[in-house]
């Protein structure tokens, strides 16, 4: 499960662009990861420009 440090997020959408499963939703100032679809590939964690995302347990 990916952890989102919401107060760090700039809502840029780079995580969404690499998600192979279309599991990330981004509105103006809201980012949500759908854990039912997410396969924990961690691509979003690797590309996040501000280190907002973290691999959780």
């Amino acid at each position: 499960m990916i952890k989102i440090k919401k107060d760090l997020c700039d809502f840029c959408g780079t995580c969404v662009s690499v998600c192979p499963d279309d599991a990330i939703e981004l509105f103006e100032t809201r980012v949500i990861i759908n854990n039912e679809i997410c396969t924990d590939c961690l691509r979003c964690v690797k590309v996040c420009p501000f280190d907002v995302l973290e691999a959780g347990s």
């Binding site: 780079t14 662009s17 690499v18 998600c19 192979p20 279309d22 691509r43 690797k46 590309v47 996040c48 420009p49 501000f50």
Partner: peptide, 12 residues
Amino acid sequence: TNLKLKDVETCA
């Protein structure tokens, strides 16, 4: 339309 890691520049 999803990008491979090497095909996206992550920017600040």
